[in-house]
């Protein structure tokens, strides 16, 4: 403490002694301008570092959930449920592949959405309100936009780790016939972020959680997981119900992942639409989340 302080006053002392030095105020100002450089450039990364440190305290859960739940889902649905799906209908039921191959990319994309559901809800409420670490960051030289960026960055990394683990297990189960399969990792992360950024923006607007987050889980996340062509193709629904799937980022993400993992036949323009839709949704959510961050932190 005293060590550090001495070093600075020494520097100032030199400036005073030197008659040609600029006056003290502009010296101080210059010091401030210099010290602001790093946070301006790397602030988002510093925020992400903080999130990683927090996540480290639940590494156990992240790893066990990261390996355990894909294992359980792939086995229960891709093997167990597949027995009765593949067995009951004589003709190839779903897109000409086994049920395992059909359902695995959907489970991968849903896993990313699940991470989004965890990381962009309570941790956001926590940061803004319950344990206002975001105000703490903002009181340091971090800008509100960087707080939003940093949180998104850290979650993207966690999603990537989860998706890679998931994908490795898919390979073990033999659920990835196509060589382009690894691209499904990227599409899963994109899916998770597209939905997650919007969710984060929404959560950021909440001053108080009086059950809104539970409602989002129940009426958005759950139906999305169930009705996005995940466990059965959207086409089993009558045509007038299918638009429900089209607005769902998970449907776009799932279809995209299927194209990559087993060459699901769809026109190329549709593939482009999937990517464009997810990118656009992410962009909207991101910009919105940054705006709210500025509004909330700069009150």
């Amino acid at each position: 403490m005293s060590e550090v302080r001495r070093s600075r006053s020494a520097a100032e002392g030199d400036a005073y002694r030197d008659p040609s030095a600029m006056d003290a105020a502009s010296d101080v100002t210059r010091a401030a301008l210099a010290a602001g450089r790093n946070p301006r450039r790397w602030g988002a990364w510093y925020v992400a570092e903080h999130r990683f440190r927090v996540m480290r305290s639940y590494t156990g859960t992240v790893v066990v959930a990261g390996i355990g739940s894909p294992l359980l889902y792939l086995y229960a649905l891709g093997v167990g449920l597949a027995t009765i799906v593949d067995g009951s209908v004589g003709a190839e039921p779903v897109g000409g592949v086994s049920y395992l191959v059909f359902v695995a990319p959907a489970l991968l994309a849903s896993a990313a959405v699940t991470v989004a559901g965890e990381e962009f809800t309570y941790p956001i409420m926590l940061g803004y309100k319950w344990n206002p670490t975001f105000s703490g960051m903002h009181a340091a030289p971090i800008r509100p936009q960087q707080v939003a960026d940093g949180v998104i960055l850290s979650v993207a990394v966690r999603m990537l780790v989860n998706a890679v683990l998931f994908f490795a297990l898919m390979l073990v189960f033999g659920a990835v016939p196509a060589a382009t399969g690894f691209l499904a990792i990227a599409s899963a992360v994109l899916t998770g972020l597209a939905f997650g950024a919007v969710l984060m923006a929404y959560t950021s607007t909440l001053e108080e959680d009086t059950g809104q987050l539970a409602m989002v889980m129940r009426f958005v996340v759950l139906p999305m997981t169930l009705f996005s062509g995940t466990f059965f193709p959207l086409t089993v629904f009558p045509i007038w119900l299918q638009p429900i799937g089209w607005i769902s980022p998970l449907w776009h993400g799932t279809e995209l992942a299927r194209v990559f993992t087993y060459g699901y036949p769809e026109p190329i323009w549709l593939t482009v639409v999937h990517v464009a839709y997810l990118v656009a949704m992410f962009a909207v959510g991101w910009v919105w989340a940054r705006r709210i961050a500025v509004r909330r932190l700069r009150k």
Binding site: A25, S26, V28, T29, A32, L33, G36, A139, P141, R143
Partner: peptide, 14 residues
């Protein structure tokens, strides 16, 4: 510190 907080927030807060 000779700076306007509207423009130099991070610099001031540093």
């Amino acid at each position: 510190l000779g700076l306007d907080p509207d423009r130099f927030g991070p610099e001031i807060r540093s």
